[in-house]
Write a protein that binds this DNA or RNA. Structure first.
Lengths: 194, 194
DNA sequence: AATGTTGGTCAACGCCTGTTGGCAACAGTA
DNA sequence: TACTGTTGCCAACAGGCGTTGACCAACATT
């Protein structure tokens, strides 16, 4: 009764496992790591807390399973160099609006060292390689990627976590109109010189 | 034995009170609200946990007393309009490097609703009025202030909390060289049009 | 010298946390 | 039917949490 050779065998508990992950994402996104208790997650998933332990080992294992991030960044080759800024900001906004995984990761990354390490990994493995191919001098890529991630994460912070009213109510297109030139500048403009 | 009419009367317990606040700031900055336990704060201040309750009522009261923020933003009148961006970014960096209060506020603002409300208050009461006086059309001030705060808070997030290596190791002057024109643009450039 | 106030310690309360092991119901197989 | 592994619930554990109140010591005031 397996799906195929590439997918894991389907188990009777698959529905429960998925319910736990969905609830975990929602609680982690809303409450952060400490206040997203296993009991609260279990209650939302309508199962017993011990099931979480059985399927995911412990709380850290649950977090690792619940927050698996693939930014799905566009390929550097198919990215017009002078459109990189706009593409990045619209892509990030789409990802943030789509579901709560990124909000969960951001909230946890701030209170939990394992979460912070996860975010550094995503920065290194997903954003940095893209910037290396877009910016003129690969040696400057880390600095430029840091500037880009600072701005984008700051936007997510004020809009989705702190909910500053002006940031939370801005239309995505207006955000893109403001940020795209800035990101483009960080990616491709010559170093301003300290 | 009072100092003067403007300062509070000095008490024998002032040293203890200060030790508690110092320890609280350090723990809140390092651990966030939930994991900064009263017991840990008391131990670091080398006093009994019950003293914290006696002097500050409860944990929320302690947080309110420990994290009283005055951004000490420059006066809008004395701020050359075309130097506003650079002034802002260097001022913010100075404040963040000076002590851990802002890091504490940022960490707590993300896990604790009271902390988030405090940050919204600082945004409204301190940054927004300044932007209103600097930017051309006061009606656009909220959006422009939101853009500025997004970028600055994002910088603090990646540099002081998540500690992305490139962001954490950047020299303040290089940060200023990159961010000053961006902030200046957000403050005074014409609306890009959505 | 007696008294009230303040600074500080100690032990405990009730609650919540992550985590564990035992037990019942069920599915698939032979 | 009997057997085996899976799914799920229940009750409990040890420990940490914020918080409280009783108690003692040092000081200031009378």
């Amino acid at each position: 009764m397996n799906q195929s050779k590439t997918t894991a065998p389907s188990r009777r508990s698959d529905a429960t496992r998925r319910a736990i992950l969905d609830a975990a994402r929602e609680r982690f996104a809303a409450d952060g790591y400490e206040r997203a208790t296993i009991r609260a997650i279990a209650q939302q998933a309508q199962i017993d807390p011990s099931m979480v332990m059985r399927y995911y080992g412990n709380k850290e294992g649950l977090f690792a399973a619940a927050v698996a991030i693939d930014l799905q960044l566009p390929d550097a080759a198919s990215l017009p160099r002078n459109e990189a800024g706009r593409t990045l900001v619209t892509h990030f906004l789409d990802m943030w609006e789509e579901n709560e995984v990124l909000t969960a990761l951001l909230r946890v990354g701030i209170t939990n060292e394992a979460g912070a390490e996860r975010m550094r990994g995503i920065f290194n493995d997903q954003l940095l390689p893209l910037v290396e191919r877009v910016c003129p001098d690969p040696e400057q890529a880390p600095v430029r990627a840091a500037l880009v991630s600072s701005h984008l994460l700051g936007l997510a912070l004020t809009r989705y976590v702190l909910r500053f009213p002006p940031a939370a109510h801005l239309h995505p297109e207006e955000i893109a109109a403001w940020l795209a030139p800035t990101l483009q500048h960080y990616l491709t403009a010559p170093h301003p010189g300290a």
